[in-house]
Design a binder for these strands. Structure first.
Length: 967
RNA sequence: GCGAAGGUGGCGGAAUCCGGCAGACGCGCUGGCCUUAGGAGCCAGUGCCGAUGAGGCGUGCGGGUUCGAAUCCCGCCCUUCGCACCA
């Protein structure tokens, strides 16, 4: 028989308009019963969509179709994050206005969404570049300004030399621009900031209540970077006080120097005249470094002594003040106390510059070491040590002859060792113990390395006894030369305080608290919390963004644009320049709203992340020209129930949106203070990208055999990376749809792997989906032919075993698919289950005796549960089935737990852990452990296996298995 | 270095939450059918070793708990991602 072949092009087009015209995707906004706000991150309209983008939108569309069939009142809007640099670059290169370029792309995106069958409530479409939207972005700016949360400040800012624009900290990834990956430079500029740091604590704390992927929450937590410590005040001989932040106040007595960030404002005042030139040179050199160079992990420590001293607040000791670029102005107070014994960086710095290292925290592991120099002790010492069970190994020392390498474990051994050493020590020598103890045993004295003064004393004595130590500047430098000591010279663990005056002996777990209290009692410092998070720099020196609604008046200073004058419109110009609004002379002059005198407009535009930090509120009332959003609707519909987008926004957009939401909540405009209740991050789609050294990126289709460049024949470098236009490794949905239809692309996209994981696109995989849909189509047509007459409902009571099995599998499949949509969204496994059932149904349908009512019912339910994945083919077959309503008007099928129970079950029988037999049993028997055990033991395969063995134990798990232990 | 996730066939991945037949589903591969032809379609097979047998071995490695471990516990190794001189 000749059946109609599956021809998607012939059926898909009509359903696109059908869904749209029937308004299935329009939210019933004023009916908030069973409301569900589903949101995909809105895109930046840059060119065309590729198959990688599809992952996000197709997943969303499937979820929304499911929710609609489950009876949810779904709000599923779409809009455009339409301001941004690429539009401006295109404008500069092609002479098109950014707005025209943007809208051309938007039209293209919408066409592609429609082709995919991805539908939205288009009545709510918004674009951030339109005045009716950015008016309210400006309004939010004014509100922040009113509350002191938007401010202008001069400072070192991140500058991308390629994009010629400043960047927020979040937009610098590993020292490079988030957009173009150029190394970021520092520039001193006056810019606008949002005081997001005022919300640091709440942004951190409220992560707890979010149903977000753990790793995303962790990334935000790390970004906010809360640390508890103390702020300690160090007086200086020159006068000004230096405030330092430390997370280890318990190491205070080990502070042997201070380091300020080179940019620290006190530096000029604290610099001694003779050091001025060196200090200035160092500050200038630091200035020139890019962020990347400055923070390169392996870089050797550099720094300059200011020539002046601070006074240690606890000991009164004079300690030198340095500047070094490893101290950052933007964190803490921009100044640290150098505790080289217990901070890795300070340790390196002290070794490099010969600053004393004074241990003040005991080693918790009790480990100590001692090197006995040749001739330092009388013969018999080694034997004496061994008699005490002390580990000592003879070996050459400093190329001067045989000595001893001693390892001591615990205080008892150390004490005993010191006693023995005193007994055996030769005149004119010394012996030291380092690690757990810091003792220097001389003929006439036992000295401890417990202060900078002791450091000088000990070193002087050692140099006297051993003149070759002459060039060493500190005891630590001397010890560090001894390879054997390396692992005990430094540690950063908590432990009992030593060498710490009145607080010596404080145990590690109390040390932080005790020292902080001690400082507070004396007014020397206080408990403090610091965050890594910095304020959000939002000024951009570009044209294509929302103008900052501020006016600079020579008399009144900075004056906000009155609300009634919003929006501050982007000037309509045919040509834009590189400087942005500053290039457009007619934009700048205005009138001061306060004094009516001549004034200048602010020429910066806002970071596009400001536009996207509140768009989810605008969808509720996209055309409201009286206010940014309708509080009543917003409070009824938000927070967003499910937000889906890429992980690349884990910090940037998601942190900013949380901040703005909390701010609007504090203004009393929002009842909620977190915008996105549940977040799902889908993985990127990768594809091979080919690089030719001369012709750069080559589209995969043009690559010649043997990975050769089509232009020059050079061998290409292949890398599998996220699809992107710039790397030319995109797969076009337009071509896929022309060849296979939208359903095939949708099905493959949802089937290729767990949606949260990154995955490589596979042409063969697409064909697999295509084959499945062909088989499915043929099966459906077969069932349609066979069941033309069958209109009555199924009668499970009349089922034979085969019918019963099909029926049970159908219900198991409905259950599986339903649970995936409602739970973890591993839709790849839902598709697999549907395929599995389709095979089973196919097999059953081949039997001419098959029950037509069951075939029809199975097909009907199958169409419904497959429809979120492949809506076109399902809608088509659904209507051929003679159903009057559309699929989206039909309830999602329910599964019957009773039906899941098959009449017969297979029970594996294990003997000593290996499956040796399988029994097919009626459920009633399998449910009874006694009967199960008896049946299992009676089975012939089991009997023969048990020959000569004694059954020791039988475990019968009802309806699961039988396990026999036999010896 | 810190933090997180993860190691299962030739490949993508199921089963992991809650221990109970490992390898669902798809790709690829092998054989067959159909076709003038196939990079189309259909059917069958496909973890590894073994001979198509009996059998044995198998979820990164080593140990443990258990009648039974991919799954739970302890110790390693490796990979990926994020952060990284943050005091």
């Amino acid at each position: 028989m000749n059946r109609e072949p599956y021809h998607p092009q012939a059926i898909e087009e009509k359903w696109r308009d059908f869904w749209r015209e029937r308004g299935f995707f329009k939210a019933k906004i004023h009916d908030a019963r069973r409301k569900f706000y589903y949101l995909n991150m809105f895109p930046y309209p840059s060119g065309k969509l590729h198959a990688g983008h599809g992952r996000n939108y197709i997943l969303g569309d499937a979820i929304v179709r499911f929710l609609l069939m489950r009876g949810w009142n779904v709000l599923n809007p779409m809009g455009w994050d339409a301001f941004g640099l690429p539009a401006e670059n295109a404008a500069l290169e092609q002479g098109i206005h950014p707005r025209d370029w943007t809208w051309t792309n938007i039209r293209e995106f919408k066409r592609q969404f429609r082709a995919w069958g991805v539908e939205y409530d288009w009545d709510r479409e918004i674009a951030t570049c339109e005045p009716d939207y950015y008016k309210w972005t400006q309004w939010i700016f004014l509100k922040l300004y009113e509350k002191g949360l938007a401010y202008r400040a001069k400072g070192k800012v991140n500058w991308c030399p390629h994009c010629e624009v400043v960047l927020a900290n979040e937009q610098v990834i590993g020292g490079r621009c988030w957009r173009c990956h150029s190394p970021v430079e520092k520039r001193e500029l006056e810019q606008w900031y949002f005081r997001i740091t005022a919300y640091a604590e709440r942004l951190l704390r409220d992560l707890e209540k979010l149903d977000w992927p753990e790793h995303v929450k962790k990334m935000q937590e790390n970004w906010i970077g809360r640390s508890e410590g103390a702020e300690i005040v160090f007086p200086t001989e020159k006068g000004p006080e230096i405030r330092v932040f430390t997370t280890r106040p318990d190491t205070l007595w080990g502070a042997t120097f201070l380091v300020l960030a080179p940019e620290h404002p006190l530096v000029p005042e604290l610099t001694a005249p003779e050091q001025r030139a060196a200090v200035e040179a160092y500050r200038a050199a630091t200035d020139r470094l890019t962020e990347m160079e400055r923070t390169a992990a392996e870089k050797e420590k550099t720094g300059v002594f200011l020539g002046t001293y601070a006074l240690h607040p606890a000991t009164g000791e004079r300690i030198p003040i340095w500047i070094a670029d490893y101290v950052l102005m933007g964190y803490g107070t921009g100044a640290i106390m150098g505790v080289p014994a217990h901070d890795e960086r300070d340790f390196q710095f002290a070794l490099r510059f010969g600053l004393p290292v004074i241990p003040v925290i005991d080693r918790p592991d009790g480990l100590a070491k001692s090197v006995v120099r040749p001739g330092a002790v009388r013969p018999g010492f080694l034997e004496a040590l061994r008699a005490e069970g002390i580990e000592a190994r003879p070996g050459p020392v400093d190329g001067e002859g045989q000595g001893l390498y001693v390892t001591l474990r615990g205080d008892a051994q150390i004490d005993r060792y010191l006693e023995l050493a005193r007994e055996y020590l030769q005149p004119g020598h010394w012996c030291e113990v380092v690690g757990r103890r810091w003792a220097f045993l001389f003929e006439d004295a036992l000295l401890f390395l417990d202060s900078p003064a002791s450091d000088r004393r000990i070193l002087a004595r050692c140099q006297k006894l051993k003149p070759t130590l002459g060039e060493k500047r500190t005891v630590m430098e001397m010890l560090y030369a001894q390879e054997f000591y390396r692992d005990v010279l430094f540690h950063a663990a908590y432990g009992t305080m030593i060498h710490s005056g009145p607080l010596s002996g404080t145990p590690g777990e109390e040390a932080f608290r005790r020292v902080t209290a001690w400082l507070e009692e004396r007014g020397l410092g206080k408990f403090a919390v610091t965050y890594k998070l910095r304020d959000w720099l939002i000024s951009r020196q570009r044209y294509w963004g929302a103008p900052i609604p501020m006016i600079h008046c020579p008399r009144c200073g900075i004056v906000p644009v009155p609300e009634k004058d919003l929006p501050v419109l982007l000037p309509a110009v045919d040509r834009i320049g590189k400087l942005g609004l500053a290039d457009i002379p007619e934009f700048i002059p205005t009138v001061c709203p306060r004094c009516a005198g001549p004034a200048r407009r602010d020429t910066d535009t806002m970071d596009t992340f400001v536009d996207s930090s509140w768009y989810f509120l605008r969808f509720l009332s996209p055309k409201d020209d009286a206010r940014p959003f309708d509080p009543e609707l917003v409070n009824r519909w938000l927070p967003v129930d499910l937000y889906v987008g890429g992980v690349e926004h884990a910090i940037l957009h998601l942190l900013y949106a949380r901040f703005i939401t909390k701010f609007l909540h504090d203004l009393g405009l929002l009842a909620f203070d977190e915008p996105f209740k549940r977040l799902f991050t889908q993985g990127m789609v990768t594809y091979p990208a080919y690089w030719c050294p001369t012709h750069h990126w080559i589209p995969p289709k043009e690559v010649q055999a043997g990975n050769r460049c089509p232009k020059c024949g050079a061998e290409l470098v292949v890398s599998v990376v996220a699809m992107s236009k710039s790397k030319k490794n995109v797969v076009s949905p337009d071509e896929l749809i022309a060849q296979y239809g939208a359903d095939t692309e949708r099905l493959y996209t949802l089937f290729m792997g767990p949606p949260e994981k990154e995955i490589e696109w596979s042409e063969e995989g697409v064909r697999g989906a295509w084959r499945f849909l062909n088989r499915f189509w043929n099966l459906a047509l077969l069932i349609l032919e066979r069941t033309r007459e069958a209109r009555e409902e199924v009668d499970p009571a009349a089922f034979g075993p085969r019918e019963q099995a099909v029926w049970a599998k159908l219900h198991a499949t409905i259950k599986k698919v339903t649970e995936e949509f409602e739970g973890r969204l591993a839709l790849n496994t839902a598709v697999a289950a549907i395929m599995e059932f389709t095979h089973a149904l196919s097999e059953y349908a081949e039997d001419p005796q098959a029950d037509p009512r069951l075939l029809r019912r199975a097909l009907r339910d199958l169409l419904l549960i497959l429809s979120p994945f492949t809506p076109f083919i399902c809608e088509e077959l659904w209507h051929r089935l003679g159903e009057g309503r559309a699929i989206l008007e039909t309830p999602w099928p329910a599964y019957d737990p009773q039906a899941l129970e098959e009449a017969e079950v297979e029970i594996p029988v294990q003997i000593n852990g290996k499956v040796r037999a399988r029994l097919r049993l009626p459920r009633a028997q399998a449910a009874d452990p006694k009967a199960l055990e008896a049946l299992a033991l009676a089975a012939p395969e089991v009997q023969s296996r048990l020959q000569g063995l004694r059954v020791e134990k039988v475990i019968a798990v009802p309806e699961k298995l039988v396990s026999i232990v036999a010896r």
